[in-house]
Every structure is written in C-alpha cells, then in structure tokens.
C-alpha cells in the first residue's frame, strides 16, 4: 500500500447563519485521488484558492474529510485512535514562519514537538542537534528566532518537524513569503532531506521552478486534480497550465514559443542547458 492514499476525497466548508441554517457551501476538495509512495518527492501545484492547502491540512488530520477516504501510513484517518500516530509521522510546515515558531530560542523551539510526544530529555538533545544539523542551522541554536531571516526561520520550522522523526513532511507554501535567496535555502534543505534521509516530501506551492526536482506533480484547480505526472510531462502542456492560472518557467515558455514559431524543439524543456543543447542540434 502507498504511504498516502486518498480516494474521492471531498471537503466542504459550510457557512451557517445565526440560526444554524446553511448559508453557503464551498467545496474546497471535490473528489481528489492522491497516491504518494514512501520516500517520494511529490509536488502539488495550484493557484491561490485551488484547494491545495485544504488538501495539505487533511494529510495530518488538521481537517477531516466530508466524504471519501484517506489512508495515511496504512491507517484509515476516520479511526480516531490513529490521530496522534499520524500527526507524529506526518509533519507539517506552514507558510508564515513567524506564526509557527513557539519558543524564544531556536533549540527550544525545535524541542517543542519531541516534548509533546514525551521523548526523554537525553534523547531530545540528540534529536534537536541532528535535526538542526540536517537543515544547516546548528550554529544558530542559541539565537532568538526574531533575529533570523525568513529562510532561516523556515528552516528552523522544518527542523522542529524533523525532530519528531516523521516519515513524511508536508510543506504548505513554505516559500511564499520569502525572497529568492530564502526560497533557495528552504528548497535545498527540503530536497536534501528527501534524498539523504529518505523522508517523503509533499510540497504545496505555486512556484513552478520549485517542482522541477519533484518525482511527481499534481496540478489542482477548483478542488480537483486536473493534471498529474512527472514534471517534464506536466511542463510540456504550457497552454493547459496557463488556463489553470499557473505559468511555466521562463525557459520552458521560451522553448514552447519557439516551437510554436516553427522550430522543431522537443516538448517539456526544463532547464537552460537542455534548451541550449536542443538549439545547438537544430542549428
């Protein structure tokens, strides 16, 4: 069985007026199927309001589905007693770095998760050290989070999740509030965790550049999965992506435009190097 399996997942936000009458229903997830294997790097793309954040919050049971089924790590999320088990195994990193750091010292924040699940003191120290090292923040262990840059804060947040030794981390637009350098720092840390520690990664984002390194990409629109496949296959469908309010990396777009203009360039060019090679072969 896959690490995460969702079948026809539905989530409705129901707004009620003062007399508890249903005022409006917003279907944020509309029959989503999702399969994530252990150790995979999966990206979920979508514009703001496409339902991708709602999906992320289901994966560690911050939200419960209105319909459909979701298995995480072989457990049905409908069963109440699997809640803490799943939360421990599926860590979650949110968009705003400031609003997820609890303690006033970096190492104490990283210890927050292990403290909650009752890890003995001596082991907490080891975990804090290992997870701060894994995101390259060990030299800041004594610092106040307020003095760190956005990228550094977000890496502390990732370390805080890693200290719980989860099998999977879900990152809900972790780079949306960061500058380009911060974005790169965070993404590199995530890719490293995936490749070196074998952590399953689910990255929710609207930056196309960030999903190039993923094993599999899901594209969401209006609560539905509208495209899925390897990055190259996704990026070869430039017009479809545009219709879902997304855009493709500048190089891919250029390759697509050149193709439209009559140059026989292959579909799904992702990097500058690939485009240079393709053009050299044609010339």
């Amino acid at each position: 069985m896959n690490f995460i399996e969702a079948r026809k997942l539905i989530h409705e936000y129901i707004r009620r007026d003062e007399e508890e009458n249903v005022e409006s229903i917003l279907t944020a997830l509309d029959g989503v199927d999702l399969d994530v294997k252990q150790g995979e790097f999966v990206a979920v793309l979508g514009h703001n309001g496409s339902g991708k954040s709602t999906l992320a919050k289901h994966l560690n049971l911050l939200l419960h589905p209105s319909g459909g089924t979701l298995w995480v790590d072989g457990k049905n999320t409908q069963e109440a007693d699997s809640l803490w088990d799943i939360r421990q195994n599926v860590g979650m990193v949110f968009q705003n770095p400031d609003n997820q750091i609890i303690a006033s010292v970096v190492e104490e924040d990283v210890a927050f998760g292990p403290e909650n699940i009752g890890i003995p003191t001596s082991e907490i120290w080891g975990r804090v050290e290992r997870s701060l090292k894994s995101v390259g923040m060990i030299q800041y262990r004594q610092h106040s989070p307020n003095k760190l840059s956005g990228g550094q804060k977000q890496r502390v947040a990732i370390a805080g999740v890693m200290a719980m030794e989860p099998k999977c981390i879900v990152l809900d637009e972790p780079t949306a509030m960061l500058d380009p350098n911060g974005r790169k720092e965070v993404l590199d840390a995530v890719v490293r965790l995936n490749q070196e520690k074998g952590v399953t990664v689910i990255l929710i984002t609207h930056y196309m550049e960030e999903v190039i390194r993923a094993d599999k990409v899901y594209v969401m629109d209006h609560g539905k999965v509208v495209m899925q496949g390897v990055p190259r296959a996704i990026f070869s469908q430039v017009d479809a992506l545009k219709s879902y309010r997304l855009d493709v990396p500048q190089i891919t777009l250029l390759a697509h435009e050149l193709h439209e203009a009559g140059l026989p360039i292959p579909d799904g060019i992702l990097t500058r190097q690939e485009l240079v090679e393709a053009l050299c072969q044609l010339y």
């Binding site: 514009h47 703001n48 949306a176 509030m177 309010r245 997304l246 855009d247």
Partner: peptide, 10 residues
Amino acid sequence: TAGLDPKGRN
C-alpha cells in the same frame, strides 16, 4: 506581487 500566484502577479 509578494505572495500572489503567477496570474495574480501579472
């Protein structure tokens, strides 16, 4: 444009 999706940005 910080925090907006690509279409919103453009």
